[in-house]
Structures are given as C-alpha cells and as structure tokens.
C-alpha cells in the first residue's frame, strides 16, 4: 500500500485541517487509560470519579496527547513528524461526549535543514474546549 504524505511546499498558512470527530464511550475511556498505563481510579472507577467531584469517569491527559498526535499525522501522512506539542487543558471529556478536532496552519518556516509548520488546534466537547494549543511538525519538502 502506498502512503501519501503532505509536503511542506503544498502547505499554506491559513490552511485548515479536516475536522475529525470521535464518539467517546466508557470503553474508550477505559481502553485508553489502560493502553497509556494510567491506573488512576478516576479513569475507570465511576464511584471514585464521583467522589473526586467529576460527573463520571473521564479521559486521561495521556490520551488527549495521543489523540492530538493521531489527528496531526492522520492529516500529514506518516512522513509528517511531531516535533513539539503544547496542550492547554480545559473541559473534562466524559463518556457520551463527541470529541471534535479542528486545526489550522498558522506558521510555515525553516530552521536549518528542517521544514516546519505550526498548527493551532482545538479539541472540543459539549461543555466547551477540552484541549487547545500549538503543535510543531517537520514535513517532507520537495525542494
């Protein structure tokens, strides 16, 4: 199978990444908690989550990072390389939420031999922004 990657030369500042949506279920919250090796009870134990003041079990931060990375490389293709990720954390993501990812290229530049872009992104849930920030990627260049 041939894999396509976005090239730096084709990208313009202001380009928007296609929106992605993911329905978050209890299975999602628990499967991602275990896959990220995070056994903090609020990510799998409903009672513990309620005692902590949350409405239900909720998505852990490692998963938020994992989903942001997936969103970026789904768009760029496998040759796009994550260089830096800043995540500001907002509303909790609960089972029943639809997590909606959006992103926009805000800067295109070079540093030494690297061809870079900065993407401003946000992941939102019903209650508002769940996570937002900037990701820097190194893209392959034709030149």
């Amino acid at each position: 199978m041939a894999w396509k990657s976005v090239h730096w030369d084709e990208v313009k500042e202001g380009d928007e990444l296609p929106t992605q949506k993911r329905d978050i279920t209890r299975t999602t919250v628990i499967a991602t908690a275990i896959a990220t090796r995070d056994f903090t009870p609020v990510h799998h134990d409903h009672e513990a989550a309620r005692k902590s003041g949350a409405n239900d079990i909720f998505l852990n931060i490692l998963t938020t990072g994992g989903l942001i990375g997936k969103y970026m490389t789904d768009w760029s293709g496998p040759e796009g390389q994550l260089k830096k990720m800043v995540i500001r954390l907002g509303a909790t993501c609960y089972p029943g939420d639809t997590l909606t990812s959006n992103g926009k290229v805000v800067k295109k530049y070079t540093e030494g031999e690297n061809h870079l872009i900065d993407i401003e992104y946000n992941l939102t849930v019903a209650a508002g922004p769940h996570a937002w920030g900037t990701v820097t990627m190194i893209l392959p260049a034709k030149s």
């Binding site: 993911r22 999602t28 896959a35 990220t36 994992g66 997936k70």
Partner: peptide, 14 residues
C-alpha cells in the same frame, strides 16, 4: 504496547 496504544487511539500510522 504500541499496538494496544494504536488500537485505543484508533491510530493507523504505518
């Protein structure tokens, strides 16, 4: 561990 991660994230990066 990589496969478990990708399965949970639904990340198909080859």
């Amino acid at each position: 561990m990589i496969r478990h991660w990708c399965e949970a994230m639904e990340d198909g990066n080859p």
